[in-house]
């Protein structure tokens, strides 16, 4: 027996959803969706759950992650209830549900809090630089160490516990029995989906979107690898230097296209941008661009006189690593991959 809770709808509107109440249950959205199947039918069911406020059912559902927001549902909705945007909002809501710190919820709901977080990070970088007496070598060295520690800490203390929470909500709490062997055999799927977003190829819209997404994942992971593990800024190997340039170029060029989509608002998925969407794409862009210029300045010997540039890059990096990665849109990348994994082992 489920109790109806109309307040949930109001709560959901903090995450971007709007007008989904207008749904009169025709099911056109589900009929037109190229990813919806008989076993996993959406988005109408999710719209319905949201209207009725069936939080438990949404919390234990993987369906929001099965959608890749081609926007066909919103285009075909006769009531303009925007099921596509609702699915996006449910993903945002779910990330806050998985997050044990509950910080992501705060940041999604309040733009001022997010900005304060960003400012604190920037001030932190300044204080740290002052303590290092603005010595570039030492700042760069410790910046690199920070990267390694931040990755380990964010993953160990936030992301991993959150994935365990997700596992608990989706598999353990509903008491779904999964044989251990399935956890192992399904692992391949996790890796494939994480790197390729294979499922989104099933969307009927153009395949360029998938390709761009694929490229940016490669670029991002490539840059991460080059800077963190190969220490790009301090490495003299020509191969590593060129690789770093290539990866950072990929990032800032593709993100320019993403940003222009959000400005033009022609595609259904780019029509409604939340602050979290903007931050994700802008910070990714800035990260690619500043890394590129920093290395360029190093190669041209200008960096010594332009230490501010590295500090700016470091600020972007800190904000990205401590706010956007653990609490922002970055987590979608992780949860989506795990959603595919859980879907696979559940079946």
């Amino acid at each position: 027996m489920a109790a109806i809770n109309p307040e949930f709808g109001k709560e959901l509107k903090n995450y971007g959803a709007f007008d989904f109440n207008a749904c009169y249950n025709c099911g056109n959205c589900t009929a037109v969706c190229s990813l919806s199947t008989e076993e996993d039918s959406f988005p109408r069911e999710m719209v319905r759950f949201s209207v009725l406020g069936l939080e438990d059912d949404i919390r234990s559902s993987l369906k929001p992650w099965l959608c890749y927001y081609c926007g066909e549902c919103s285009t075909h909705c006769p009531q303009e209830a925007n099921p596509g945007e609702l699915m996006m909002s449910l993903r945002r809501w779910l990330t806050t549900e998985y997050d044990w710190t509950k910080l992501s919820g705060l940041l999604y709901r309040s733009l001022p809090l997010t900005i304060i977080g960003f400012i604190i990070a920037a001030i932190g970088v300044l204080i740290f630089s002052a303590l290092e007496k603005f010595n570039l070598q030492s700042i760069m060295h410790k910046g690199h160490i920070f990267e390694i520690i931040a990755i380990a800490a964010v993953f160990g203390f936030i992301l991993l516990p959150n994935i365990i929470r997700m596992w608990w909500l989706i598999i353990l709490k509903p008491k779904i029995k999964v044989p251990v062997i399935k956890y192992l055999t399904g692992f391949g799927d996790l890796i494939v989906h994480m790197f390729t977003q294979k499922r989104s190829l099933g969307c009927d819209d153009n395949q360029l979107r998938w390709f761009e997404h694929f490229i940016i994942v490669i670029g991002y992971l490539g840059l991460l690898f080059t800077t963190v593990f190969l220490d790009w800024f301090s490495n003299d190997s020509l191969f590593v230097i060129v690789l770093g340039y290539a990866m950072s170029i990929i990032i800032f060029i593709v993100t320019i296209d993403f940003m222009s989509d959000r400005i033009k608002k022609q595609k259904e998925m780019s029509k409604f941008s939340q602050p979290s969407d903007w931050m994700f794409v802008v910070w990714l862009f800035l990260m690619g661009l500043t890394a590129f210029i920093v290395r360029l300045f190093i190669d041209t010997g200008l960096i010594e006189k332009n230490i501010w540039l590295y500090l700016f890059h470091l600020t972007i990096l800190v904000q990205w690593a401590l706010i956007i990665v653990p609490f922002g849109k970055w987590t979608h990348f992780l949860y989506r991959s795990f959603a595919m994994y859980f879907a696979k082992i559940k079946s």
């Binding site: 027996m1 489920a2 109790a3 109806i4 009725l52």
Partner: peptide, 16 residues
């Protein structure tokens, strides 16, 4: 009031 709502796959719902 209880209903098996056909718009939600006949799920049993209740409202006070």
């Amino acid at each position: 009031i209880r209903i098996n709502d056909i718009l939600t796959a006949k799920k049993e719902m209740s409202v006070e």
